[in-house]
Design a binder for these strands. Structure first.
Lengths: 183, 183
DNA sequence: GTTGCCATGTAAGGTGTTACATGATTTA
DNA sequence: TAAATCATGTAACACCTTACATGGCAAC
């Protein structure tokens, strides 16, 4: 249910069309889920019905007409209420951990290539997040505090993946020691 | 779709009933999602139809009859194939980060209590994971390697939450400095 | 006497993913 | 000539959550 709040959040920054919102969602690591048409366009209709946003249709030459959504006062206070609500624990779903749980079925070599694949994927993700952080993605920076919060959100993602990298590297090394120690 | 594999995994350890599987799922931080009747009982029927498990009905006095599921050779090789498949990146959904993104709507005090709440929740989670690790939850330990893998899976969860704690503590402190520096 | 354990399952609804549909314009 | 961008939306399906239903027995 937090896609509603996320949309209200972006609209509290500036009026946007569904299409622009979609791009913001897809580009954001925190929100890339829910970044699909189905949810965004449906949710915008709901928000409009609830009076939390207003809609202006813009007719364009050469392009399909777009709908610009603007947050209302009601929308702003709903957003504020949600931002104040008690936070939930993060959810992680790591199917790789389930794979690992049964990886004793594999030979040492098979297991090591599996781990190497995972390490490589995480490594690429870290690299991607770093370049993304460098080219300073669009973000509201209305106050120093807001700029800082957004920087810390980006940092959160980086540090999660770095942590993951360290973990898998340690795993590979210790498994290697376990194998060589056996001989 | 990894609930199928998770169930096959547990059954590769030993034959289990749906009820026992459910408990294993609910108690596992890695798998607690999907730990509901709806998915488990449905999936067991599917696995049975696909010939990956066999089923023995056990009539009991004083209790409802239970169904014991045993993995077949086909099931084992399906599991092995899946364990070998290229791993996916972990998915994290942290609605708290979205709250934070728009937390510039709040006063410094409101923001700090929000962060304090989150810190407290994470802290409790860490404590829970630690006691859980101490009382050594049921786990297959057929080889030293398997025991090590399961220990590292548990460690993964701990280290994620410890990382989260550090992050939120840093955030609180630096926000505090930002505020006091302003005066 | 209410709660919890055993043990199966169903129902309803919310959330998320993937793919499709339209149709003109620009870019490789 | 194939693809990407703009811009809206629909359809089908998979996945997940919550709650309900049954019914006896044991514990507090």
């Amino acid at each position: 249910m937090s896609i509603k709040q996320a949309i209200l959040g972006f609209l509290s920054w500036k009026p946007l069309t569904g299409y622009e919102l979609k791009k913001l969602f897809v580009e954001s690591p925190t929100l890339y889920w829910s970044g699909n048409n189905n949810q965004i366009y449906k949710t915008l209709v709901e928000l409009h019905n609830e009076g939390l946003v207003t809609r202006q249709v813009q007719l364009q030459e050469d392009h399909p007409s777009s709908k610009l959504y603007t947050i209302t006062d009601q929308g702003l206070s709903a957003l504020r209420r949600w931002v104040l609500s008690t936070p939930e624990l993060p959810q992680i779903r790591n199917s790789f951990l389930i794979q690992l749980a049964w990886a004793d079925l594999l030979t040492p070599d098979e297991l090591d290539t599996l781990l190497a694949n995972y390490e490589e994927e995480i490594h690429m993700q870290v690299a991607m997040l770093q370049t993304q952080a460098r080219r300073k993605v669009i973000a509201p920076e209305r106050t120093p505090r807001e700029a800082y919060l957004w920087a810390m959100i980006a940092k959160h993602w980086l540090s999660f993946h770095e942590n993951e990298l360290n973990w898998v590297r340690q795993l590979r090394q210790e498994l290697d020691e376990l194998e060589t120690g056996k001989e």
